[in-house]
Design a protein around this nucleic acid. Structure first.
Lengths: 121, 121
DNA sequence: ATACCAGGTCTGACATTGGTACCTTCCACC
DNA sequence: GGTGGAAGGTACCAATGTCAGACCTGGTAT
């Protein structure tokens, strides 16, 4: 098995930071979650992610495409149509995000409690 | 079992964003990893996390303490001494971070390749 | 005198984000 | 003929957030 070993080894920390910069921005996770297992069009994503602007959606999708997490398929039809979907790599990331979500749900209450305790000092 | 179900449900996305804001900053993960299973002093962490400034280390630790992820123990000795350690909640978060690290390692090469392909278009 | 401990403060640079406006092509409407 | 909408963006600017660096604290030990 892989040994947990040196978690703080320099290179490893750099890798983690890389992933966090990828999914740590404001919209990447939202978009990834909404792509989930289907393909979606640009404006569809725009509507689903409610207060996101086209500008941010576009930038987010470009970043995800650059890292090979989503595919962008352009159909040269009368009104242009562009489909986005998760790649296998994107799907594997989504699994990790689900773990994160699980942790978040399990600990949200405790964290909020801890915060209010801390703030009231 | 817990159904994966509505991952993009509003509240759930908000929770994920919360966690990501917590660990998505520049130093939290570094500090958490270095606390791992031992207790460490302020300057010890400062040295281990190399280019971190005291200001950022202090801020990071305060954030982590606020969320109940680390404990801060002050000894009122001649030169002041403050020990930091992960709480059980912090340890559970570290496990998730390890998963993240695993994904990062497994996908780093592919991502870099994808990036250079994208940039060279 | 100097350095270590554990920080706090203050300023300025830089990155991220939001908002608005604009573009192109097709189509429907009046 | 002109207006305006949808599709999928891009360009530019302003506000905001994040971070580093330099300096200050105060007590103790060398």
């Amino acid at each position: 098995m892989s040994q947990p070993a040196e978690l703080c080894e320099e290179g490893r920390l750099a890798l983690i930071r890389d992933v966090l910069e990828r999914i740590g921005d404001k919209w990447s996770v939202v978009v990834i979650c909404q792509l989930d297992d289907t393909t979606r069009r640009f404006n569809e994503l725009s509507r689903m992610s409610s207060p996101i602007t086209k500008r941010m959606l576009s930038a987010t999708l470009q970043g995800l495409e650059r890292d090979g997490l989503v595919t962008r398929t352009v159909y040269d039809t009368k009104p242009p149509r562009v489909d986005y979907a998760l790649t296998p790599r994107g799907i594997s990331l989504l699994k990790v995000v689900r773990e994160l979500a699980g942790w978040a749900e399990a600990n949200a209450a405790g964290i909020l409690e801890s915060r209010s305790g801390y703030d009231a000092r």
